[in-house]
Simulated assay, not measured.
Amino acid sequence: MIHEVDEALRRLLAESGLEASGVEVVFDAPTRDWAARRSAPTVCVFLYDIREDATRRGSGAGEVYDADGHLVARRSPPRWFELTYLVTAWASRPQDEHRLLSQVLTTLVSSETLPARLLTGTLADLGLTVALDTTGAGEYTPSPADVWSALGGELKASLQARVRAPLAGVTRAAATPVTEGLVVRSATRGADGGTAPGRRLRYRETTDPGPDGFAGPRDRGPAPTRRRRGDRQP
């Protein structure tokens, strides 16, 4: 799911015209060594925090059916995660960096969700809304100053983008539907321990049990006649 969010963000920024103007969009960690190797104008979207939104955790399982309406699998509900990105612009002059950062900000605040047309993989299959927020980090998210300190770089103007995305639940295949009838054979054991030929009971239909279902009539011989109480054998 994480790489699919990355791809959606890359596509969103590409639609703003950054790539057309020769600006690279990367997801590298903006360390001091990385900054020294950079040569072209760049927008860096660095993922630095991943946390589950436990308030949205569901329970139960959904059912997956094939084209014929048969149950083929059961899927646990998705779990939601909050991904926080540090977005920075890199150019030869501060004015150019601020211009790039302004363009990125305009793009990110233009929508409160990642457009469905930009989603791929499981995010597209689930069909759920992927929220996009640029109001800042969450309550327990590290501050930008702490991130820059951990990266070993100098504090730089940046944006924080948060994406709340679903992680698809686990899918378990269901047993295949029964398509054959039921056959029951019974036999009696004699005094000598041998087995005498028994009766064979079979439902009349093997693929379609009929309107009565498998509780309907079965093929079997007539029941033996019972003697009334008081009758004597000849």
Rank of each mutant, 00 (worst) to 15 (best):
E4D: 15
D6C: 02
L12T: 01
E19Q: 06
A20H: 06
G22N: 08
G22S: 05
E24R: 11
F27R: 03
T31S: 14
R32C: 13
W34H: 08
P41A: 09
V45N: 00
D49L: 05
E52F: 05
T55N: 04
G58P: 04
G60C: 11
G60D: 10
A61V: 11
G62N: 07
G62W: 10
V64K: 08
Y65T: 09
D66V: 04
G69F: 10
V72G: 14
A73H: 12
R74W: 13
R74S: 12
P77A: 10
P77N: 00
F81S: 01
E82M: 02
E82D: 13
E82H: 08
T84L: 04
T88H: 07
T88Q: 10
R93F: 11
Q95L: 01
H98C: 01
L101E: 07
V104Y: 03
L105W: 10
T106E: 13
L108M: 09
V109I: 12
S110R: 05
S111K: 00
L114C: 01
P115F: 00
P115Q: 00
L118C: 04
L118I: 06
L118T: 01
L119T: 03
L119Y: 07
T120V: 15
T122H: 08
D125L: 05
G127M: 09
A131N: 01
T134D: 01
T134L: 07
T134W: 04
G138N: 00
E139D: 06
Y140T: 05
P142I: 10
S149L: 15
A150M: 13
A150E: 15
L151H: 11
G153T: 13
E154H: 09
L155F: 11
K156M: 11
S158F: 06
Q160M: 04
A161G: 07
A161Y: 05
R162T: 05
V163A: 08
R164F: 04
A168E: 13
V170Q: 15
V170I: 14
V170K: 12
A173V: 10
A173W: 13
T176V: 12
T176K: 13
P177E: 14
V178K: 14
E180T: 14
G181A: 15
G181Y: 14
G190A: 12
A191M: 02
D192G: 00
T195Y: 01
T195G: 00
A196C: 00
P197W: 08
R200G: 09
D208N: 15
G210W: 11
D212C: 12
G213A: 12
G213I: 13
A215D: 15
P217K: 03
R218P: 01
R220H: 14
G221H: 02
T225R: 04
T225S: 11
R227G: 03
R228C: 00
G230L: 00
Q233N: 11
